[in-house]
Amino acid sequence: MLYNINVKYILHLYYDWSDDLKNVIKELRKERKITQDEFAAALGVTRQTIISLENGRYNASLVLAHKIAKFFGRSIEEVFIFEGE
């Protein structure tokens, strides 16, 4: 348990993971009935990036967030939900 906490703490020093930022990419993609491969090709990123975004393991850059929001015809705030203060 202590080991897990320390590993997570150390990794947080190097990674900008934020538990406060959620997204609805998976839901919107399924609504559109498109695969991760198709979505990745449309955005010009790898499928692995889409998987990480959907799982909340990676936060998109502002440019990619713009592209995703534009793709779904939504605003960034509708796709990416900040639950922090």
Partner: peptide, 19 residues
Amino acid sequence: EIAENDERTVYITMKACTL
């Protein structure tokens, strides 16, 4: 081209170098 310019790949490379 996509694989090389993918922002997550670039991010991972940079973070791995830092670590």
